[in-house]
């Protein structure tokens, strides 16, 4: 019997939880706020689902009942992607080391 592809996705999922576990424990506590904003940004990769949904309309019909939800999700995810990465960038740029000459 062939293995259901679901099992492979489940394996990726479980292993990623472990990767996440070890990677996040190594994040320095002073960067926990940027950690939250960057995880926020990357979880907006859900936009790939939104794009598929938005382009699901048949020829000539751009806005069908299902694609409208896709377009709405694109806006939400795009706010998050840009907002999340930019605000993280802004925060990280502020973390400076002590200047030696002081």
């Amino acid at each position: 019997m062939e293995i259901d592809p679901f099992i492979f996705r489940l394996s990726i999922f479980i292993l990623s939880i472990f990767v996440g576990y070890y990677v996040v424990w190594s994040v320095t506590p002073s960067l926990h706020t940027p950690l939250m904003s960057v995880t926020n940004a990357i979880s907006s990769v859900i936009i790939v689902g939104a794009i598929i949904a938005a382009l699901s309309g048949s020829d000539g019909v751009v806005f069908s009942s299902s694609s409208i939800y896709g377009f709405l999700a694109i806006i939400l995810a795009a706010v998050n992607i840009f907002g999340g990465f930019l605000v993280t960038q802004r925060m990280l740029a502020m973390y400076k080391k002590k200047k030696k000459d002081k």
Partner: peptide
Amino acid sequence: AGIGFTLENTALIITGALVGSSGAIL
């Protein structure tokens, strides 16, 4: 991650798991 399973999309599954465990640890 739930949506990632629906769409059979690895990037979403990995990201969902990362973010999920990150939030749990915090």
